[in-house]
Amino acid sequence: MINYQYFQKSLNHLQAQFLNYQSLDPALPKLMQEAVAESVIQRFEVCYDCLWKVLKRYLVEVLGIPEIPNSPKPIFRLAAENNLLPSAVERWLDYAEARTHTTHDYSGEKAKACLSLMGDFIRDATALYQSLSKQTGK
């Protein structure tokens, strides 16, 4: 049985912090604004990692696909082939790239690019969570 609890919790934390980020007062000191942005990126990383690992387990345990690679991109491609993704596989590959680029750099253009994907990622991750877990809410 697949445990969706960590995926759900990480998604809820990401969504809450992204809402904080979106409603930041521009008068806040730049350092505080950057801290919230960095927190969003860190929560994205945790959620993303939970997501692809749950997806891998789903492919193995529910669909019975043997010999699943242990990295996100091939898993997203397999999920797309099995009609599991709520959006085009290219978008999931963009999320994978964002995750890779933010591993050691939360500043500059890479961080901005990652943050620009958050609304779509949260919507897609929520839809995937609901589809896999058969839950209607987060």
Rank of each mutant, 00 (worst) to 15 (best):
M1F: 10
I2E: 13
N3H: 06
N3I: 09
Y4W: 04
Q5P: 01
Q5A: 12
Q5C: 03
Q5H: 13
Y6F: 14
Y6P: 03
F7G: 01
K9S: 06
L11K: 07
Q15S: 07
A16D: 15
Q17H: 10
N20K: 13
N20P: 04
Y21G: 00
Q22A: 08
Q22I: 09
Q22L: 13
S23P: 01
L24S: 07
D25G: 00
P26T: 11
A27Y: 06
A27G: 02
P29D: 13
K30R: 07
K30P: 00
Q33E: 07
A35F: 09
V36E: 11
V36I: 14
S39D: 14
V40K: 04
V40T: 07
I41V: 07
I41P: 02
Q42T: 03
F44V: 05
F44K: 01
V46L: 14
V46E: 13
C50Y: 09
L51S: 08
L51K: 04
W52Q: 04
K53M: 02
K53S: 01
R57A: 10
R57E: 15
Y58L: 01
L59I: 10
V60C: 02
E61A: 03
E61I: 06
V62F: 12
V62N: 14
L63K: 07
G64R: 11
P69Y: 13
P72L: 12
P72K: 14
P74V: 15
F76N: 03
A79D: 13
A80I: 06
N82V: 09
N82G: 05
N82F: 08
N83E: 15
N83A: 09
N83G: 04
L84Q: 08
L85K: 11
P86H: 13
A88E: 15
V89E: 15
V89A: 02
E90R: 10
W92F: 11
Y95V: 07
Y95D: 09
Y95L: 03
T100H: 12
H101Q: 10
H101N: 09
H101I: 02
H104L: 05
H104R: 07
D105E: 14
Y106R: 03
S107R: 15
E109I: 06
E109N: 08
K110I: 04
K110C: 00
K110D: 09
K112P: 00
A113F: 11
L115G: 04
M118T: 09
G119N: 15
D120S: 05
D120L: 02
F121T: 06
I122L: 03
D124H: 12
A125V: 08
T126C: 05
A127D: 11
A127W: 03
A127K: 03
L128T: 14
Y129N: 01
Q130L: 02
S131Q: 13
S131Y: 15
S131T: 15
S131H: 11
S131D: 11
L132H: 03
S133Q: 06
S133E: 08
Q135L: 05
Q135A: 05
T136C: 00
G137T: 11
G137I: 09
G137V: 09
K138S: 05
